[in-house]
Write a protein that binds this DNA or RNA. Sequence first.
DNA 1: CAGTGGATGCTCT
DNA 2: GAGCATCCACTGT
Length: 188
Amino acid sequence: MREKPLSRDFFARPAREVAPDLIGVTLLVDGVGGPIVEVEAYQQDEPASHAYPGPTKRNAAMFGPPGRAYVYRSYGIHWCLNVVCLAPGRADAVLLRALEPTRGLDAMRARRGVEPERALCSGPGKLCEALAVTGAYDGLPLDEPPFAFLARETEPEIAVGRRIGITKAAELEWRYGLAGSRFLSRRF
DNA sequence: CAGTGGATGCTCT
DNA sequence: GAGCATCCACTGT
């Protein structure tokens, strides 16, 4: 069987369990996307997380049920997509940072401009632009259209390293990727 | 390649 | 009013 959607409770686990399991999972938004190759875990008790200060208007989705999207604007320009996870007494999420563009390449190129394929989705802001994810998707369930998460068929080799673009809790190695992938935002 | 800085808008103090 | 979970263009090797 191919194209098997992730089970509903896939996301109902702590972010650091979900994050490596997302590598190789195919993400589609309205049929456009491909296998995820890079993610980062964030959890409330750690100061780099948007949930660290407690619930606010922006991070409300992180404090809602697991298996939904948390989308926020980054640096006033880009959108970034997270999946909301579940941990006891703590808000958890996984930031989707990069994927290998395999489906809807024409749509992605049209949205991003002419680019080498490897740069279409090699970063959280690029990924959202290529898949047309905006703040309108904040809080939407991930097991319903426009989203689709399709289970991987083989176990990938996972690379681990420090998260990118943060200053607080920068020493934590909560970035996970597909080892050797050409579609990462940066090498591990 | 590596490093730097500007664009840009919204959230929270 | 500060500070970003970023990207790109531009500089200098």
